[in-house]
Simulated assay, not measured.
Amino acid sequence: MDVIQRKEWNANHKKLTEIILKSEEHSQAIQLFLSQHALLHSSSVGNSGNPTLEDEVLIDLEEKLYREYPVANRDTKNSIVWHLWHLARIEDMTMNILIANDEQVSVKGNWTEKMNIDFCHSGNDMRDEEIAGLSKSIDFDSLIAYRQAVGRRTREIISLLEQGQFKKKVNKNRINRLFDENAVTQEAAWLADYWSKKTIAGLILMPATRHNYLHLNKCIRIKEKIQKRMKKSKGY
């Protein structure tokens, strides 16, 4: 995505914010969401054939550099793989627990074990040594496959929402599930409290879209900095 495409994404997100609670524009809101969401996962998820932000992150960078931690970036020190994992976890739990009241993709597909990690929380308030451990040990191919599975499931969930559901508040019992399933730790209880005040529309406008957009752009800035450093070390 170039600068013009990013401006278009932001303009469409603003439009989605304006129409998502209007019952008469329910179908249009879903279609606009699907278009926006497709640009935040690999192109295979949305089947649009257009390059996406995730494609931009994943192309032309060695796997070992995705794992680099800490990174020298002004707004994050976390590795690219941490950001991709964190995005998938947040989207998985908010869409599947809070909206659909269903099993998480991570549980259905046994993805935690496949990714070679031993915790299933959101990644918020992790200690440095935990982030370093995840960055080193997570199975990269399984991480990418998990992101794809989460993205596809999100599109199914939102496509099936009925008129008026965007206005519904998050059910308290579903917030409790986040803790019961260790998706959110007690140290990150603020996150569950934040979501508890949202409508379904609010979850769609942040965890499923804007949150992905912000973190993927962080990944791209990390990637560009790493590539610039590599070129400099080689005397380019």
Rank of each mutant, 00 (worst) to 15 (best):
E8Y: 00
N10Q: 13
N10V: 02
T17N: 11
I19W: 08
I20P: 15
L21T: 14
K22Q: 13
K22G: 00
S23K: 11
E24Y: 02
S27E: 14
Q31S: 14
Q36D: 03
S44V: 07
P51A: 03
T52I: 03
E62M: 15
E63N: 10
K64D: 13
K64T: 11
R67W: 08
E68N: 10
D75I: 15
S79A: 13
W82L: 06
W85L: 05
R89E: 10
E91Q: 15
I97T: 06
I97F: 05
L98Y: 02
I99H: 11
A100M: 10
N101H: 12
V105W: 01
V107W: 07
K108A: 14
K108N: 04
K108H: 06
T112K: 09
E113C: 01
K114C: 07
K114W: 07
K114L: 10
D118M: 03
C120F: 02
G123K: 06
M126F: 07
M126D: 09
D128F: 14
E129P: 00
A132D: 10
G133I: 04
L134M: 12
I138S: 06
D141K: 09
R147Y: 02
G151R: 06
T154H: 02
R155M: 15
E156Q: 11
L161Y: 14
G164Q: 07
Q165K: 09
K168T: 04
V170H: 02
N171T: 05
N173M: 07
N173I: 03
E181I: 04
E181S: 01
E181K: 11
A188F: 08
W190T: 09
A192I: 07
Y194S: 07
H211T: 09
H215N: 08
N217F: 00
N217L: 01
K223W: 04
K234M: 12
